[in-house]
Design a protein around this nucleic acid. Structure first.
Lengths: 154, 154
DNA sequence: CTTGACACCGTAGCAGGGTACGGGGGCATC
DNA sequence: GATGCCCCCGTACCCTGCTACGGTGTCAAG
């Protein structure tokens, strides 16, 4: 007769409170509450929550995720409207993919440089991220950045 | 003799306060302050800030971005260490790319379905995001979600 | 030498996205 | 029928990542 909120939480690797929060926020539907008022979820809510988490990790806000999840044609939305919104999102996503691919390239260059070579002082990620630039005059003064230590602390 | 904080802000499309915040947070180096104590930036700080913004839009936290930007070999970091961290990030990024490609596919399917067909009730994004699943038994009960309205409000 | 745009600093406030808490109930099991 | 585990609800709190504020200083132009 459906999963309890605790079971869903465990399957999704999130906290029970998070699920209640997502419900309040309109990201998941209010489930049935047959017996004692306890929520009972259909199994596919798990997919939905996992989608939310993944989309969040990709930089979408909960509001955007709500929009994504609501992309369907129903009595209140025309085909054209849905198509338009979907196409906007596709462009958005393509841009994200491109940025990530650039970052990946930069990092791959870094590991490659690392394999054969010694110290590369300036930040190779920035070098490689310039529009179609692929080397770059090194600038001397390879100072450390102050402020909070970046990793390498544990 | 370098850009003022205001000029950098304008070029990056961010607020002056954001730049000061990034400085405090260790994302950008403390610039020179020759004359009256005003910050003077080398032009490449613009690239750095734009990188931060892009990375943020891709779901990286400022802490992670600091780590990314610090990936270089210097007197305090061995090649192996850098390589290890870079490779972890590459895996991370590959996963993000894959997720985004799945989302893109799902949306493309949606617009395609839209072109030829009428109402598709259940959420096609979720259908398409199941591991290697590509249709899915429609489930009846095409209810609306309550909670906050998802877009379609303007 | 004043006016205005911009810079400085510290601190406070805010939105997003959860997370924790406290008090109360359901249900199975010992 | 008491113990323990899970659920309910509302509210308060917390961290991240800015953003705004207020009071002061600088410098270039008129």
């Amino acid at each position: 007769m459906g999963l309890t909120i605790g079971q869903v939480a465990k399957e999704c690797g999130v906290d029970v409170e998070t699920i209640r929060f997502y419900e309040r926020d309109g990201l998941i539907r209010q489930p049935a509450r047959p017996d004692s008022g306890f929520r009972r979820y259909p199994p596919d809510v798990v997919k939905r929550i996992l989608f939310v988490r993944r989309a969040k990790a990709l930089g979408f806000s909960l509001r955007e995720i709500r929009d994504l999840l609501s992309l369907r044609v129903d009595s209140a939305t025309t085909c054209d409207e849905v198509k338009k919104r979907a196409e906007e999102k596709i462009i958005d996503i393509k841009n994200k993919i491109r940025s990530l691919q650039e970052m990946k390239h930069a990092l791959e260059k870094l590991t490659a440089a690392c394999r054969g070579r010694g110290p590369t002082a300036e930040c190779p990620i920035l070098e490689a991220l310039e529009d179609g630039n692929d080397a770059g005059t090194p600038k001397g003064t390879p100072e450390q950045y102050p402020g909070k230590q970046a990793a390498t602390k544990g």
